[in-house]
Design a protein around this nucleic acid. Structure first.
Lengths: 263, 263
DNA sequence: TACTAGTGAGATTTATCGTCCCGTTAGAAG
DNA sequence: CTTCTAACGGGACGATAAATCTCACTAGTA
């Protein structure tokens, strides 16, 4: 294995190392913080940061001194996760799950305007909801969205709920901020989210988080179906199976693929 | 924006460009395929590929000629997608603000050359100004820029104004240093900045500061619109709402990521 | 045999490192 | 409260060393 210092002396890799360092913090980082970790001359580090920022791989934060992943890095990572060998494995897990549960399953990640579907496996039922990959659904009235909200800090979730437009999609939609907050609090405690016809009339869903090794939520895994054949009680019964699939997904994504051969 | 060839001449970015190219294909790619897209000498490309492979960012496929994302790149992308940086929260606040005010709102931070747009929410009006995220606008003739100038110390402001090139963008642009200084002084007193068609003829704006916990200005939050439907008087009426959103933004940015549970 | 993909060795270009300097900030003394 | 000093973070300039480009070669294949 190459040493860390070895890699730092390879020019082509420095930008990558810096990116890794930025990404490894889940909060915006300052140049100084990175400098404490990567042992590069500060000028070099600073130039790399500005270069990466100018190219759109990084983005200056609102305080104008710290950095976060930029749009280009995000699209890159989406490309990584949706390409290559990992995708088949993920799809296999999802397919397996959907076959077991007999309903549509999906994997969603947060974006600016709502949750966006990353993967999706349809059932063969004639009656199903058409929300293709790439669709964006609201935060406040979907299982995935509420699950994401529940992963935020208390102050953030409060501001978020205050700022969201709580459109009344169905009679069940929670348009009262306090009711939504209560729901989110419950979700945080129980570890999964429910959507009982809050987004689309006649459709209900449950969602569980996919957690990375540090326990942060990477994405949400959900199953949904029409109320005609799926009751909330049955859906809750799927939670364990969902959690298992979520753990599988987390393992697949986080693991080094070259860990050990087949037993 | 930097050109593609521009980026290729920047050494630090070449590895990133190559990675982007590799992941843009959803199947394993050979060196030759990449070479057709990125216009690098074969030797250079090959060295970059082997370096990236040795470092674990890429890995060779079974056929030993094509490449796929390696374990390190995967964990990087996981980190990016799971780092909920709170950008969603910021966007929600901005969206909410823009919806309330009915005009385009933006968040800008100072840089060396001017104010750079960090976030931006457009209205659905057909008539609007096109200034995408990442655009840089001058200090001396924009609400955000003048607001930033007003946050500096007196000596700095003087030096800054002296060294700025006060280009006359419109008839309203203040090109006299003393007039600009007077304006800045007024801004400092009243706590918000106005731009009455000083940057673009027919566009006016008001901006308020986003302050951190120490009271220092981190960024500026502004609303702008065409004079055809937005008068300065109406814009001034938006100040309170802007201040409220600015407070929300400040709170979101400054709060600790460590969760305290919902009360 | 000819053609394509990958490889090796020097001259050159380029980024980088060390040093210095400036602006800012924290602390203390007046 | 002001002002001084010291220390720190952050930016500019020449020597250096790395990476790159050109050219020519090898190997595999049709």
């Amino acid at each position: 294995m190459s040493d860390r210092t070895d890699e730092l002396s390879t020019r082509s890799l420095r930008a990558l190392i810096v990116l890794e360092e930025v990404v490894s913090h889940s909060t915006p980082v300052t140049a100084f913080t990175i400098g404490k970790k990567v042992d590069l001359p500060k000028q070099t580090l600073h130039r790399i940061l500005t270069t990466l920022t100018a190219a759109g791989f990084l983005q200056k934060e609102i305080d104008s001194v710290s950095y976060t992943p930029g749009p280009r890095l995000k699209s890159l990572s989406v490309g990584i996760l949706s390409s290559g060998t990992g995708r088949e494995v993920r799809m296999a897990i999802l397919n397996n799950l959907a076959r077991d549960l007999g309903e549509t399953c999906n994997l969603a990640i947060p974006s600016d305007d709502g949750m966006v579907y990353l993967e999706r496996v349809e059932t063969h039922w004639p009656l199903r909801v058409e929300l293709p990959i790439g669709s964006t659904v609201p935060f406040h009235c979907t299982a995935s969205g509420k699950l994401y909200l529940s992963s935020l800090s208390a102050s953030k979730v409060k501001r978020m709920v205050k700022s969201l437009h709580l459109a009344q999609n169905t009679p069940n939609t929670k348009t009262d901020p306090q009711a939504l907050l209560d729901d989110i609090k419950r979700i945080r405690v129980q570890g999964f989210a429910e959507d009982d016809q809050e987004f689309i009339h006649g459709m209900l869903a449950v969602a569980v988080p996919v957690l990375n090794t540090e326990g942060k939520m990477m994405s949400s895994l959900a199953v949904h179906g029409p109320s005609a054949r799926l009751t909330m009680e049955v859906a809750r019964g799927h939670i364990d199976r969902l959690r298992q699939a979520a753990a599988d997904l987390a393992a697949v994504v986080c693991d080094d693929p070259d860990d050990e051969l087949l037993d």
